[in-house]
Design a protein around this nucleic acid. Structure first.
Lengths: 173, 173
DNA sequence: TGCAACCGATTGCAAAATGCAATCAGATTA
DNA sequence: TAATCTGATTGCATTTTGCAATCGGTTGCA
């Protein structure tokens, strides 16, 4: 896909790539949620994307070089979507965006705990996370002695908050 | 203005604020271009925003707490728009966004030189810039012995590139 | 073998957002 | 007083979005 190219300004061009209401949501679910299939993205995101919009955005993101698509060997009709390096390098931007939104917007506690952790982890954590994504999506080698994955760490924090808020659950899990 | 609040996720809420094609362009022109009036924003941006969209987005950004509007004392019919702290803290995000776009998208040299400088300046430069914006827009005191303003520095670099590219101009300015 | 469930989409349609040009009333300038 | 500039507003055609239904093929299970 070619950009409209309203101007050659880096900010404008970035907006032409993901300056809509869904592209970055899809990337967020792939990056932080680990989703790789159409249905996972369709049913997984709390915002409830429509299937035609999802199909359109996946196609667009592929044409822009942010995603690739491959056949899932285990299921003949399943397609598996992978992030490219171009998309993986969005991690610091998403971290900043999450941090900004957490400060200025009415975020919910359980959904902002991950942004908080990612902010506190800072660039070292982002780099570790990007390496893990490169491993998952690009098949790059991964440093073995690196402890639990960043995604697992973020997910555990999320679960802890949800458990703490759920009625009857043990807050001191 | 109330957000649609598709979800309380910080990234989603951030997208609901400026996840469209124009809001961040307007903020970019105010932050980096120093534009404060309707006409400056209308005619100044190279992307060419329509006046009804500009009016709508200014209103929306005001309702979201990103901008304020006041009468310009020098011209009775002129309105002057100011950034709030909420908008000023977008500077690091814009810096990251510009850096990302410069790497991955077909940016033009003259329009990406500012992003490059801002990236090289890093957080210290961003902080200085934000302080200058707080001075301009919020009337905060400014450290006096701080040299030329960040905006002037960025603008000078832009002019130098433009002069170097212009036929007949002196590249070694 | 049958059959329901699931796969990645596609289609049709109404509603909303966008882009564009013309226009507005008041204030300023010449 | 006439032209120009101010921040908008209006009307209208085009585009995008949101939503529900549906599609042909695949899979898992009885």
């Amino acid at each position: 896909m070619s950009l409209d190219r309203r101007s050659g300004c880096p900010i404008n061009l970035s907006l032409e790539v993901f300056g809509d209401r869904w592209s970055l949501i899809i990337l967020r679910d792939m990056i932080f949620g680990g989703r790789r299939h159409f249905r996972e993205l369709l049913n997984g995101s709390i915002e409830g994307i429509a299937s035609n919009i999802l199909a359109d955005r996946l196609k667009r993101l592929m044409e822009l070089g942010m995603l690739t698509k491959a056949d899932d060997p285990s299921h003949k009709q399943k397609a598996i979507y992978s992030l490219t390096e171009m998309a993986i390098t969005l991690v610091p931007i998403l971290a900043h965006l999450g941090a900004w939104g957490r400060v200025w917007l009415p975020t919910s506690e359980e959904l902002s705990i991950r942004a908080e952790l990612l902010e506190k982890g800072g660039p070292p954590m982002w780099e570790k996370f990007m390496d893990e994504l490169r491993h998952e999506h690009l098949g790059m080698p991964l440093d073995t002695a690196s402890g639990p994955s960043v995604r697992a760490t973020l997910q555990a924090a999320y679960q802890a908050v949800v458990a703490g808020k759920a009625p009857g659950a043990s807050p001191a899990a």
